[in-house]
Computed example of a mutant assay.
Amino acid sequence: MRTSITAAACLLLLGAAGMPAHAQSVGEKTGVNSLIGVAPSSQDFVTQAVISDMFETESSKLALEKADEKTKAYAKKMIEDHKKVSDELKSVVQTGDMKLNIPTALDSAHQSKIDKLKGLSGDDFTKQYHDDQVTGHKNAVDLYKRYADSGDNAALKAFAVKTKPHLDEHLKMAQELDNKK
C-alpha cells in the first residue's frame, strides 16, 4: 500500500514538473527530478542557477566579515566567480529568444540560510558557512550536470557544459576547506 502511494505521489510530481510555470516546478522544488536524474526545465535551471549564485555571493560577503583568513580567501573567489557566472547566464538568457524569468531575490529557503548565518559568529559561523558551501555546490553540480546532459535549450545547455567544471572545482575547494576546520 505504502509503495503504491509513494509511486502515485512521484507520478503526480513528475506530471506537475512538465507543466509550464513562472516559478520552479514541483518536481524540481521537491528534489524528485534530482533523485531520478531528470533534467530541469529551462526555467527551473535558470531560476536555480541564479538563486545559487546569489546565495554564494551573499553568504560569501558575510564570510568576508566573519570568517578566518583561509575562509575569507575562498569567499572572495566565490564572489568573483559567481558574479561572472551570473552575468554570463543572464547574457545567454537575454540574447536568446527565451522567454524566461530571471529571479531578482533569494527564495525563502536560501534567505533563511542567510538569516541563520547572520546570527552566527566565530567557529559556529565558519562551520555553517563551510557546510552550506559543500551542500550548495553539490546541488549546483547536480543541477548543471542534469541540464548539460539533457537540457532542452541549446544555448543554456552549452552554458551548463562550459560552467560545470568550474563548479566541480568549487565543490572540491569547499570540501577541502571544510576538512581543514
Rank of each mutant, 00 (worst) to 15 (best):
V85G: 00
S52V: 00
S34R: 14
L89Y: 05
M1W: 05
L12H: 00
H137D: 07
L177R: 11
H170L: 04
P20M: 05
A154Q: 14
V92K: 08
A39H: 04
K66V: 10
P103W: 05
Q128V: 07
Y129F: 15
M19G: 00
A174R: 06
A39W: 07
P40E: 04
D124S: 15
F45M: 07
Y147G: 09
G122E: 08
K99R: 11
E80V: 01
V161Q: 11
V85R: 03
T126K: 13
Y74P: 09
L62W: 02
V85L: 05
G27T: 05
A75Q: 05
G37Y: 08
S112N: 11
H130N: 15
G119V: 02
H130D: 14
Q175A: 09
G15A: 08
V134M: 10
K61S: 05
E80W: 00
D124K: 15
V32T: 12
D123R: 13
T71N: 04
V134L: 12
G122W: 06
D178I: 08
G37P: 13
L171H: 04
E176R: 05
N101Q: 14
H166R: 03
V134P: 13
Q175N: 06
L117K: 01
N101K: 15
V50G: 08
L143Y: 05
A174S: 14
D44S: 09
A75W: 00
N153I: 12
Q175D: 02
L117W: 01
N153Q: 15
T163I: 07
K84T: 05
T126D: 15
K77N: 07
L167M: 04
L167S: 04
F125G: 07
L120D: 05
Y144S: 07
H22Y: 02
Y147L: 08
K127S: 14
V50T: 12
N179D: 15
E69V: 10
D168Q: 10
D168S: 04
V46H: 09
D168N: 08
E88L: 08
V85T: 12
V26G: 05
E69T: 12
L106M: 03
S41N: 08
G119S: 01
G31R: 12
K164D: 14
G37L: 06
S59I: 00
S112D: 11
F159P: 11
D132R: 03
Q133Y: 06
Q128N: 09
D123E: 15
I79E: 00
A160L: 07
G122S: 07
D168C: 03
I51S: 01
K61E: 13
S25W: 08
Q94C: 00
P165A: 02
I5F: 10
L13P: 00
